[in-house]
Nucleic acid binder design. Structure first.
Lengths: 107, 107
DNA sequence: CATTCATATGAATGATAACACATATAATAT
DNA sequence: ATATTATATGTGTTATCATTCATATGAATG
């Protein structure tokens, strides 16, 4: 008998993991409100072009971003408006979480 | 001159990455509405106790969960109500994302 | 105080992921 | 057609992470 596996749950984890990498998160913040081409993103993040392209591919494979080509440039934007909300809200949340490195701080 | 590093952004990535692992996500869903002790969680998830404990520690180190001990048992709950929203919303989002494995599906 | 129940921890291993470097493709301009 | 600009891809290396197994701690109970 095969294990009970919730596909959606795995997809959800994949989505969150994909967003939860610093450089990808930075990329997403760059395109939070407006589309950007790869070169714009590379300049904004200040990392190697190939690294940015790899991350963009990862984001695309997770259906987090979609692309549109115009002339030589390829523009990336979020695939769904709700993504912006989640990114913004989780950013806000981080500031509100209890900072708690010590053993008994939550008692 | 040191690089410009946004600490909050790294923390945000750490948070999302921590949530973005299947077993941890399942744990979080178990305690979404009510606290649970480790044994409850182990039974619900159906994985090794030590694995669950490791993941719980990870979640605690990221300040995502807090604990309260009563007698022999240690109860875990979310550290912030906004976490439940983000978990729920990202779950909803996954269902709404365009499924797009093909090259030109978003053109 | 020895046993049991509940949970945590440490170390080892295997899997996955990030990154750099080199190179390829593809569109446009000269 | 060749050069240039924009982006993608393949590969190897290193680092991070999930998992297992064994063991430890700690609280309660007989």
């Amino acid at each position: 008998m095969s294990e009970h596996i919730n596909i959606t749950e795995e997809e959800q984890a994949r989505l969150l993991k994909c967003i939860g990498e610093v450089n990808r998160l930075r990329i997403l913040k760059e395109i939070l409100n407006e589309e950007r081409c790869v070169t714009d993103i590379v300049n904004a993040i200040g990392k190697e072009q190939s690294l940015i392209s790899h991350h963009l591919k990862h984001l695309k494979d997770c259906n987090i971003v979609v692309t549109q080509q115009r002339a030589k440039k390829i523009y990336y934007r979020l695939s769904h408006p709700r993504l912006a909300k989640i990114i913004t809200q989780s950013g806000q949340l981080v500031k509100e979480l209890p900072i708690c490195q010590e053993k008994e701080c939550n008692e």
